[in-house]
Amino acid sequence: MRRNLAIVPAFNEADSIAPTVAAIYQWAPDFDVLVVDDGSTDATAHRASKAGATVLRMPFNLGIGGAMQGGYIYALEHDYEVAVQVDGDGQHDPRHIYELLDHLREDPELNMVTGSRFLASSGQGFQSSAARRAGIRIFSSLVSLITGQRVTDPTSGFRMTNRRGIELFARDYPHDYPEVEAILLIHAHRLRSCEIPVLMQPRLTGASAISSTQSVYYMVKVLLAVFVGLFRRRPIEAGDRPAMAVEHAL
């Protein structure tokens, strides 16, 4: 049985999901592929399943955070050692999965490795629009300041975690726009993370999940979450939510 899982969150990605799954199988044959279909209304689940992936269907759209956490709970319950997030729209090149894995294996202290599009020699690959880069830079300096280490791409969803990271994210994962908060969550739990350079592709199809009005909400929501998070003395055990996944695994 394979010990590594690629979690692919997808919402109405019927056109790009099959090539994405196929590319993961091609470039990372040691990985099982789990597509988390976040309440799609098109053929996403069907095509993912035909492409050979295991499909987790959410009964309605939970948002990226809830969908990803569903994937981490699956990884926890099926005893995977390593989980990597790969977007369903083709932005994340599966060729980098083994680079992430090598870094994670090399340093046993490391719990999470993120693929950063800004560490690659300047201007290569898909870099997002200027307005977004400005927003990313704000988060980047904020996260670097809080964690005390250089974080160049805090909004990258292309990241790999080991078992400790899987356990943490299965128990507690931010709701919407989770990437920035997830880094801080890792830091708050005294786990270690690092970045390696990757090239990102423009999306294969469809529009970004984040429109310009939503970008404003994104900024405000994440800034609020980061600010409030600074005042949490200890990382919360997800409030009064029954920790079903953890209990189940025990």
């Binding site: 987790l56 959410m58 009964p59 809830g66 569903g70 709970i73 699956y74 709701h175 409030g239 939510r241």
Partner: peptide, 19 residues
């Protein structure tokens, strides 16, 4: 807030059980 949190947990559990 509490309800939507519980709702999320239920949805995830439903998805996992269905699989």
């Amino acid at each position: 807030s509490r309800l939507s949190d519980q709702n999320k947990v239920l949805a995830q559990r439903l998805g996992l059980l269905a699989q």
